Amino acid sequence: MPTPSSSTGAASGPPSSRRCEPPAMAQAYFRHLNYSLGDEDSSVELHALPADARHVVAVAGSGGRVVPLLARAPRKVTCVDISDTQLALTELRIAALRQLNHTEYLGLLGYEAMSIQRRLELLSSLPLSGSARTSLEPVRQAVQAGERIVYLGRFEGMLRTLSRIVGLFTGQRGRRMFEQPDVAGQRAWLDGGFPKGAWKLVLLLMGNSAVLNSLLYRGDFPKKNRPESAFRIYWDLFDRLFRTLPVRSSFFLQLVFFGELRYPEGYPIECDADVFLAAQRAARTADIIYVRGDIIQHVQEQRDVDFVSLSDVPSFLPPERERDFLNAMKPGLAPEALVVTRGHLRVASPEVQGYEVVSGRYEDAIAKERTQLWRIHFYQRRS
Rank of each mutant, 00 (worst) to 15 (best):
P4V: 05
S6D: 02
R19T: 07
P23E: 05
A26S: 11
Y29T: 01
N34P: 00
Y35F: 14
Y35W: 08
S42Q: 09
L46Y: 03
L46C: 02
H47Y: 10
L49Y: 00
R54T: 10
V56L: 11
A60C: 14
S62T: 08
G64P: 03
R65I: 11
P68R: 02
R75S: 13
R75T: 12
V77G: 06
T85E: 01
A95L: 03
A96E: 00
H102A: 02
T103S: 13
M114V: 07
Q117S: 07
L120W: 00
L120C: 01
S131Y: 10
E137A: 14
P138W: 10
L152T: 05
L162R: 13
G167L: 11
G167S: 13
G171R: 15
G171Y: 10
R176T: 09
E179A: 15
L190V: 12
G192P: 05
P195I: 10
K196F: 11
L203T: 08
L203V: 07
V211C: 04
P227L: 03
F231V: 08
R232A: 12
Y234P: 06
V247W: 02
S249G: 10
Q254T: 09
C271K: 02
A273E: 15
D274E: 14
D287N: 14
D294R: 05
D294K: 09
I296A: 06
V299Y: 00
Q302G: 07
D306R: 09
P314W: 00
R323D: 00
N327P: 01
M329D: 01
L345F: 01
R346T: 01
G354L: 09
Y355D: 06
Y355T: 01
S359E: 05
R361N: 13
Y362D: 04
R370A: 01
R370Y: 01
T371L: 04
Q372F: 02
Q372L: 01
F378V: 09
R382V: 06
S383C: 12
